[in-house]
């Protein structure tokens, strides 16, 4: 905002709303993190509440957990996908669009595989749903985790396809990673939100790996 000769405020409206939309993306991705943290927090509360109560000595009488191999694969893939996306995004900001696209394909593959393993784990449970408190909270956790993984995959996929479609649009302006066009900035803001969310999710996955497989 500035003043002209008549002391009237001067506004670049397009730039103002563009900045607002970038801020909106930032806020939304952080809100998504808050919602996810709270939702997972509720499940973690259920876990620790039932574990500490150990009603009827039936929290986990046989000490049986869900498949640790699948659980390990899921968390490792979530972490590797987050790291891959972060490195790719860094390359993108230096102009390496293809580098990011490759990392995005890799991340997408890992996240989809991870979601698949999470669903598969439900078919290989060494307990029935009503066996124990642990069984219940694991069966509550696994579908939620699978759904979040699928949503992350959707997010990566839409950005990936968009980057492919927009290749020509930004080619003359330094490419998607360097272009100062509003659409490119929006793309990068969206990607930054995805990166933040994936990093958060990787941390969350580690926490839940610990509680479901290490201290169970």
């Amino acid at each position: 905002m500035a003043a002209n000769l008549d002391e009237k405020p001067v506004i670049d409206e397009e730039a103002y709303y563009h900045d607002a939309s970038l801020g909106g993306l930032w806020t939304a991705s952080r809100s998504a993190v808050a919602v996810t943290a709270t939702a997972y927090g509720g499940i973690a509360f259920a876990y620790f509440y039932l574990r500490s109560l150990n009603s009827n000595n039936a929290w986990d009488p046989g000490g049986v957990t869900a498949s640790a191999i699948l659980g390990t694969l899921i968390v490792v893939m979530a972490i590797v996908a987050a790291v891959s996306n972060s490195l790719g995004a860094r390359r993108l900001r230096k102009g390496g669009v293809v580098d990011w696209q490759v990392s995005a394909v890799f991340s997408l593959f890992l996240i989809l595989l991870s979601a698949g393993f999470q669903i598969w784990s439900l078919t290989r449970l060494p307990f029935t749903p009503s066996t124990s408190g642990y069984a219940g909270v694991y069966i509550a956790f696994a579908p939620v985790n699978a759904v979040v993984l699928v949503l992350i995959a959707y997010w990566i996929e839409t950005l990936l396809v968009k980057s492919i479609r927009a290749k020509r649009e930004f080619a003359q302006d330094g490419g998607l990673g360097l272009s100062s066009l509003p659409a490119a900035e929006s793309f990068r803001a969206n990607l930054e939100g995805l990166g933040f969310y994936m990093n958060f999710f990787a941390l969350l996955s580690i926490v839940f790996f610990v509680i479901y497989y290490v201290i169970a």
Binding site: N56, A58, P129, S130, G136, A140, V144
Partner: peptide, 26 residues
């Protein structure tokens, strides 16, 4: 989100026969 967790837990107990809200089974 915590309410949705609670409703989800209730739904699983009802539809999938988990026992998160039932003391006999943990």
């Amino acid at each position: 989100p915590v309410l949705i967790d609670g409703l989800y837990v209730l739904g699983l107990d009802r539809a999938v026969q988990t026992s998160m809200l039932y003391g006999e089974h943990g």
